[in-house]
Nucleic acid binder design. Structure first.
Lengths: 146, 146
DNA sequence: GCAGATGTTTGATGTCATCAAGTACTTGGA
DNA sequence: TCCAAGTACTTGATGACATCAAACATCTGC
């Protein structure tokens, strides 16, 4: 192997590296959320709320049982980070909306993921673009099959 | 933007893509573990056991309280996937070792992460090597800062 | 307009996570 | 030597997360 040729990784090596990166990023996220008194699950929910999302939609996004979402949203609502709004179109549905405080909180959590920010700063523009393009290609299969 | 030039991603876009991939991989892992009646935490512990690891070491690897590990290992041990062995060097320490059945189980779990395997199959050897090299560079900062 | 499907909540139960306290052992000096 | 301080593990209390089953309101299609 020459000094400049990249290491040719086995699939298993690549899988483990991907897992390690994923784990580290999750820890970074959980730690940042913790500084605002949020569990990682609560922060994850907050991160989904660009717009109004029905309870059922949250359960699908989180890949968990709908009854689970009730308690999580209860706790977020009790802290004023989230609001339940009845849907105009379907009276069974309750849409969950982030409050201003909720939006601000999740913005800060993302901002404070220093391990992740620091790591991404290592790459130059071309490398970032390459990484982005490669991950973009993995994404559809990862998300569809799972 | 030309048709062949890769999209130049903002840091936030890259961060979100990385999070999406990480989430999908975790779901894939949890689903595979579930098929063997394991929670994702139990599977994660099993995945750490290449050799003997003291309880305390597991707590460090999982970034959780040591008292938490007691219960997780209790349940794995009750199912015969893991064994506690007293350390010869330090009688306070109990080393956790995967049994043959435990090793076989985690091997199958990894094998059955079809979303991840399927996604990685999309890349050719050169692309895999590029991705590996890029992630390798991110890794130290991600893990050290977190 | 009724039967079946869907959205949400409640209640029971099990796992994961923390902290505080207790026991057993090791270690570094006085 | 022997004791104080530290470390490894467990137990018990408590809260968050996860599932399932069941109840209830509402929607949909026939």
């Amino acid at each position: 192997m020459s000094a400049t040729a990249p290491h040719a990784p086995s699939k298993l090596e690549l899988l483990e590296l991907l897992a390690a990166i994923g784990t580290a990023q999750w820890r970074d996220f959980a730690a940042a959320a913790g500084r605002y008194g949020l569990t990682s699950t609560q922060a994850k929910v907050l991160a989904q709320l660009e717009g109004p999302v029905p309870m059922r939609g949250l359960a699908t996004l989180l890949a968990c049982d709908a009854s689970n979402v009730t308690g999580i949203v209860d706790r977020l609502e009790a802290r004023g980070l989230v609001r339940r709004e009845p849907s105009a179109a379907d009276r069974r549905v309750k849409n969950v909306v982030a409050t201003d405080e909720g939006r601000e909180t999740i913005r800060r959590v993302r901002e404070e993921m220093q391990a992740t920010h620091g790591a991404l700063d290592i790459l130059d523009a071309a490398e970032s673009a390459t990484l982005y393009a490669l991950l973009e290609r993995l994404r559809p299969t990862m998300e569809r099959t799972a």
